[in-house]
Nucleic acid binder design. Structure first.
Lengths: 195, 195
DNA sequence: GTCTATATAGCGATAGAC
DNA sequence: GTCTATCGCTATATAGAC
């Protein structure tokens, strides 16, 4: 509104930029995403984005950390709930994953990061993040290796369906696979088309 | 060697370019891949690549078709073999998938394509390719929806492990997941580092 | 804390010769 | 069938003002 209110603390601006970055990196991937789109998403100028994070690469690395933290937070909350209500960790974590599907940016940003293992700077971060999830499943959720592998595999299939931008109405095979993957209630984010 | 022998038929050149493109798109993804790298891989000039395929986008679409055809060919050969030797289609297709892992470019190009569902030109091609595989599993391999979903999920996890550029020596969690995914013989392509 | 202006580099695509 | 030369766009990053 007024000119002065546009000046906000750096910490707060940082989070706004990271939130915008999750959307942009998720939609376009690392290479096709532009710092300008992130800036527009955060409502600031492109050079300011770069000023805050140094480089686009560094922004992506911090965005990966941001999304990973959110994933782990969601999973840990689900585990606590399963504990309190005596539900199985497996079922409760599956439901938690579906919550995350609602926000396409999170899972797609992670998957795009996972595809960059060959990148010297981003690869180690991506591997570290992936296996942090694996360790959480094994140690905190009490999964066996087979349970953890199966959980991750199902997750990657769901990520792929999001990345494909699959819609329930596409055709018979599509409807069948979506029904088989999600059961009765296909996440609503599959029904809207991308803005 | 001699100057004249460098002139080869367009059809043959096309295949050379597509083979180079599979490697490059697999390694860098669509956006970060350059027509110049593809050209160097095929041993020709960058403008000639563009000349042959019109645009980089069109090159990617044809590369997707090329890799998908190879995937389906491998699967169908495995099915024929399973038929002849009385093996289960599920086990034989799993083994066929592992053959494809040896050539990182194929599976990574496909996965990069699957991540581009939101792209107006590439999205429809990627979805079509993915569900062509699904239909093959259901109709030709005789999989139930659950078997097909599970097979695809395991495949996507393997693709992700390739994309992450995971190495067996990384740490305990890594070794455990690789052992759990591949059993005794982890594909050798996981042991070499990328060139 | 934030912007405008701009330097700089890389890449896809075109023109045209051989 | 293939190359060299080059245009023009886009995008990251820097400089410096407010």
């Amino acid at each position: 509104m007024n000119a002065k209110s546009d000046r906000i603390p750096a910490d707060e601006r940082r989070v706004q930029i990271l939130d915008a970055a999750v959307e942009v990196f998720g939609r376009y991937g690392y290479a096709a995403a532009t710092t300008d789109r992130v800036a527009k998403g955060a409502g600031i100028s492109q050079p300011y984005v770069v000023r805050m994070f140094g480089t686009k690469e560094q922004l992506f690395i911090e965005t990966l950390g941001h999304t990973l933290a959110r994933l782990l937070r969601t999973f840990r909350a689900a585990l606590a709930e399963a504990d309190a209500e005596g539900l199985s960790a497996e079922a409760r974590l599956g439901a938690a994953y579906l919550e995350l599907v609602g926000d396409r940016g999170v899972l797609l940003t992670l998957l795009h990061g996972f595809m960059m293992g060959a990148d010297p700077a981003i690869g180690p971060v991506a591997r570290g993040g992936f296996f942090e999830v694996y360790r959480m499943l094994r140690q905190e959720a009490g999964f066996t290796p087979e349970q953890a592998r199966s959980f991750l595999a199902e997750g990657m299939l769901i990520n792929t369906l999001i990345g494909l931008d699959v819609r329930p109405t596409d055709d018979l095979a599509t409807a069948e696979l979506l029904a088989c993957t999600f059961g009765d209630d296909v996440p609503e984010s599959f029904e809207r088309s991308i803005a």
